[in-house]
Design a protein around this nucleic acid. Structure first.
Lengths: 211, 211
DNA sequence: ACAATTGCATACATTCCGTATGTCAATAAA
DNA sequence: TTTATTGACATACGGAATGTATGCAATTGT
């Protein structure tokens, strides 16, 4: 059992630090997560942390980048599997809320992230997500499905609506029933953009599913 | 010049602490605001702070309560002055965004507040604001102006959309132009709820104004 | 095999929060 | 009027956490 190559060891410690920090940040929160504690839990010390990430904020950035990558991967997968562009759009919105219901994501990305790293609308990943949604809206407008004047602005609004919906659902006593109501409201709101709205949203009825 | 009554002095120190903290939280942020520093700036010490507010979080709650009161006051005033219920609703949304553009509000209420005090959808004030909006939506539905199944869910979505819009506008290079686009998109989105939508939103056209 | 780079640990200084204690003024009572 | 008590606020102390500076050891290149 020869020693692994050095670069691999380094990547391993980086991953260990990110994983340990992600768990600590997601449970006790960024402010109350002691660097001594969770580096020790990873079998390391703060020395490794400062060497690789500069400071605590740098580590938070790395954690958020990891989470963002996972979210992006899932969102693109959802969009790929939709029959129509409009269905893909709706499905993407629902998938977004589903992911935002994860307590770890809520705590790290939605609450501590903005407080420590500044406004999320300036983050690279958020920007990418918004742009992707804006592109969808643009295409939907081009094909005559919906009406939008400024796709980017509309994407920002929709994104905010879904984020708030996720926060709401996660902090209510009965998330199951609430999520159903939220999905229904989202569909109602988005279908208001349709040029030829179906009477009761039957267009995407077959794809409705509970969270 | 007799001494003021004791209760008045106490209220004064409380107000001084809240004001000093509000300024510190709004500029350097909650985490980097040293209690020693801003209590000294108010001519006091941490002793007064702990006596009146228990801890740093308690002071943040007091600061947010003060800001919330101001926001509520303004929102009710806007709603009172609107000619129709629908116009009042639109105006309220726009006023909400205007207020959320204030850097102090963004920093304290929208970013540090959730990180320190937990999810804002559980805050008393937020709940009141949402309920007010839900009531509006219910009345608008009753009078046949709009279609909504669950007013509360729709209010949550709209609230989130406006919050995100404010964050977006505040962190973009040209807030002027962006705010115009945001308002237009909001009107488009909300008018999608109208039972009998006017072709180009002319119904509320006269009330359009830039931020 | 040797030297140099560097991943990571250890030790230290600083800062900040929370508590415990003390003091002085104002109000209530005698 | 004098005394006693309450409470508003300051001071002092302990603990913990972050960031930096230094040190060691192991791998890589020559």
């Amino acid at each position: 059992m020869a020693h692994k190559p050095r670069s691999e060891m380094i990547a391993e410690t980086r991953a260990k630090l990110v994983t340990a920090a992600r768990h600590a940040f997601g449970t006790v929160g960024y402010a109350d997560a002691s660097m001594d504690d969770f580096t020790a839990a990873a079998g390391l010390t703060r020395g490794a942390l400062y060497h690789h990430f500069g400071d605590k904020k740098g580590l938070l950035q790395a954690v958020i980048a990891e989470i963002d990558a996972e979210m992006n991967e899932r969102l693109t997968a959802v969009a790929r599997n939709a029959p129509t562009r409009w269905d893909g759009f709706i499905d993407g919105c629902i998938a977004y809320i589903e992911m935002a219901l994860d307590p770890e994501i809520q705590r790290i990305v939605l609450r501590d992230g903005p407080a420590v790293l500044g406004d999320p609308t300036t983050w690279a990943i958020q920007a990418a997500c918004i742009r992707s949604m804006a592109d969808d809206l643009q295409h939907l407008a081009d094909e005559g499905t919906i009406t939008v004047t400024d796709p980017e602005a509309m994407a920002q609004l929709i994104n905010g609506a879904m984020l708030n919906a996720a926060l709401w659902i996660a902090n209510v006593t009965n998330p199951e029933a609430t999520s159903k109501k939220a999905v229904q409201a989202i569909k109602l709101l988005l279908e208001g953009l349709l040029v030829h709205p179906s009477r009761d949203g039957e267009r995407s009825k077959p794809k409705v599913r509970s969270l």
